[in-house]
Write a protein that binds this DNA or RNA. Sequence first.
DNA 1: CGCCCACGGGTTGTATACAAGTGCACAACG
DNA 2: CGTTGTGCACTTGTATACAACCCGTGGGCG
Lengths: 229, 229
Amino acid sequence: MTTQPQVRPGPAPRRQSGARAVYELLRERIIAGTLAPGERLTEPLLSGSLGVSRTPLREALRLLQAEGLVDELPTGGVRVAPLNLADARRVSAVRARLEGLLTAEACERATPEDVARLHRLVDLMAAVRGHEEEVLRLGAQFHGEIERMADNAWCSALLRQIRGHVDRYRLLAARRRAGTTDHVDEHRAVAGAIGRGDPAAAEAAMRAHIERSAEMTEQALTDQTSTTP
Amino acid sequence: MTTQPQVRPGPAPRRQSGARAVYELLRERIIAGTLAPGERLTEPLLSGSLGVSRTPLREALRLLQAEGLVDELPTGGVRVAPLNLADARRVSAVRARLEGLLTAEACERATPEDVARLHRLVDLMAAVRGHEEEVLRLGAQFHGEIERMADNAWCSALLRQIRGHVDRYRLLAARRRAGTTDHVDEHRAVAGAIGRGDPAAAEAAMRAHIERSAEMTEQALTDQTSTTP
DNA sequence: CGCCCACGGGTTGTATACAAGTGCACAACG
DNA sequence: CGTTGTGCACTTGTATACAACCCGTGGGCG
C-alpha cells in the first residue's frame, strides 16, 4: 500500500472523495466476482445504483480501465474484463517477479527484529495449519511485512494492480474448489534466506513460492473449466 | 447507411477523446522535464492553457496520479512528482525484473525469424556504434521486439508505467552529461540466449543489461548533483 | 503589541445540461 | 418475404454551474 500514516497530525482530513469510494467498491466487486466478467457497465445505470453522479463514476471507471479491470468496448462503453487461463499465467508470472524483487530488497534492509517477526509469522502459520482462513490471513500479513521492509513504493503500487488480477483468478478457483495446500515450508524458506542475508536466494524462494501458488490456482481452474473459447 | 450487418473486425471508429490527448501531452511534458519536478498543477490554469474544460483535464490528471507522475498534495492539489536518487534505483530495479520476465517469455515463444530479427538489430547497432541517436533508436526497437514476442499485455502495461519514470531520470541525466556507452554486447548476449532457447539465461542477461544501464544513469546523476552550480 | 476571528480569493469535488455519435427496431418497398 | 431506409432511444464526451473547503489577510480586541 501507499504510505498511509493513518493518524495524520496535519490539519488535512481531506474529505474522502466519493470517486475513490466508488473506485474501491467497484474494484472489490470485480475482484470478488459480484460483477461478472464480460458484463457491460453503463454509466447512467451505475451512477444511479450507487447514488452518485456520472462525474465521480467516470473517474472510477477510468482508473479501473487503467488498471485493466475493465475493458474498453469497441463501441465506446466498458465491460468487466473477461478471464482466461492464459492471462492467469501471465499475471502470476508478473507477480512472481515483483514479489521476488520486494523480497530481495527486504532482505537487504532487514533488521534482526524484522527477521524475528517473519519467523514468528511462519510459526503461527504452522500452528494453525489446516485452518485456511487463518493461514491465508497470516500469509497476507507475511507478504505485507516484506512489502513494508522493502520500502519500494513503485514496486508496491504495481504489485497492488497485479494482485487484483491474481485475486480474481484465485477467488474464482477457490469458488470451484477450495484447496489451498499449506505453503508454510515455502514461507519458511523465504524467511530463512532473509535471515541468512542472501537476497538472491530470498528472491528465488519467493518467486518459486508464487509460481507454485499460481500453478495450484491454474490447476483448480483447468479441472472444472469445461469449455474455454 | 450502407449494409453493416455486424461490427467489422477492422478499424474501430473510436473517436479520439480529448482527455487522452491531454493525458499524453502532460505525460510527455513531465517525462521530458518541460513541467519541472515539484511544480504545482492547478486545474483552472492547465485547462485554460490547453484549451479544454476541467472535466477532461481532471481525467488526465487522475491517470497521471495513478501512474505516479503527479503527487497529491496534502492540501488537495497535485504537483509534478519530484525526483530523487533513491527512487531512480527503485524504478530501475522494477524495470529490470519486468524486462527480464518479458525476455524469458519471448525466449519461450521465439521463432527462428524472431531470433534472426533480433540478431539483425544487434548487428545494426554494432554498425552505427557511436551514433547515440541511432543506437538508442535501435535499442528501443530491440526492446519493443522482445515485448511483442513475449505477448504479455499485463507486463507490458506495467512496464510502460515504469519506463515513464525511468525515462524521467534518464533524460535528466542525459541533459547533464550525454554518456551512453554502447550496450551492443549486452544486447547480443540477450539475443544469443534467446537463440539458444535458454529463458533463464535470457532473463538474467536482460536484467543485467538494465541494471548496468541504471547504474550509468545513476552515476551521471550523482556527478551532476556534486557539480551543481 | 500580540492574538483571534471573520472574510475573501481561489481551488477542488460534484452535479447537471448539452452536443455528437451509434446501434436497433420498425416500417415501407421491391 | 427479404432488404433497405429512417427515426429513436441510448450512450459517451464535454462544458458549465454550484457547493464545500482551505489558506492568507486584515481588522478588531484583549
